[in-house]
Each structure stands twice: as C-alpha cells, then as structure tokens.
Simulated assay, not measured.
Amino acid sequence: MDHTSHQRLTESELTDAVLSGATIYGPGDENVGTVSHLHGTGAGAQAIIDVGGFLGIGAKPVAIRVSDIDFMRDESGTVHGVTQHDKEAMKALPEHRH
C-alpha cells in the first residue's frame, strides 16, 4: 500500500474515538494488529494493540507509544497506522494488563 498520498492525522485527532479499531501495518505493509483503545490522548498516549488471534479471539494486547505509529487516513477516510515493528516484534512485547 502506498501511504505517500494518505493524510497524516494531527495531534488533536490522536484520541480513542478516532484511533480505536484502526489497523496497524508493519514496515512491509503486513497487518500487525488493531488498536483496541488508548491510554491518554495525543502523541504521549499509549495505544493498546491487539496482536495475533482471529477476529479478536486469542489476541494479545500490547502497549506502544502513539508517537511510534504514523497514523493517517486513506483516500476513503479510513484511519490506519504504520509502525517500524513487524508482527514478530509486536508479539514479543510484554502483554498489556489493565
């Protein structure tokens, strides 16, 4: 997927309401997870990403700083993010517990 034409989100858009459900892609455009929810707002927030599993069942929640994800909207307005972590690196992160 070519992300160069996608509109980057502003810091004010980095909220739970906007980012929840967003697909996260790794450096090779592989799907590495989905945003479950945020702790905080803005670039300093932590995104809780569900990694692995199928349709949310058996997924492992991991926390990653929102600033480590390039969030954007595609041509149809769908929000997604790109991180430098591949799927294996995301799975290796410690499980997030509330």
Rank of each mutant, 00 (worst) to 15 (best):
G21H: 04
G44M: 09
M72E: 14
F71I: 00
D68K: 11
E95N: 09
D74E: 11
V66K: 03
A92S: 13
V32C: 07
P61Y: 02
R73S: 06
V32N: 02
A63C: 00
Q7L: 14
S20D: 06
G44W: 01
R65S: 07
Q7S: 13
D50P: 01
D29Y: 10
P94A: 07
T41M: 14
I57P: 13
R97D: 14
M90K: 11
G77W: 01
E13T: 08
A89C: 11
M72S: 14
S5I: 11
R65V: 10
V79W: 08
D70S: 13
V51P: 01
A22Q: 11
S20Q: 05
G40Y: 03
S5D: 09
G26E: 02
D50C: 03
D29Q: 10
T10Y: 05
V79F: 06
R8S: 14
T10R: 10
V79Q: 11
L38T: 06
G81C: 00
L9R: 08
A22P: 08
R65Q: 09
T4G: 09
T41H: 10
H96R: 12
L9P: 08
G52N: 00
H37L: 12
I49K: 03
S12D: 12
D70T: 05
P61G: 00
D70K: 07
T34C: 06
L93R: 02
T78G: 12
N31H: 12
Q46L: 13
E11H: 09
M1N: 11
I24Y: 01
S76F: 14
G33S: 00
I48N: 03
E95G: 05
A92H: 00
D50N: 09
D74M: 08
G56N: 09
D16G: 12
I57C: 10
S5P: 11
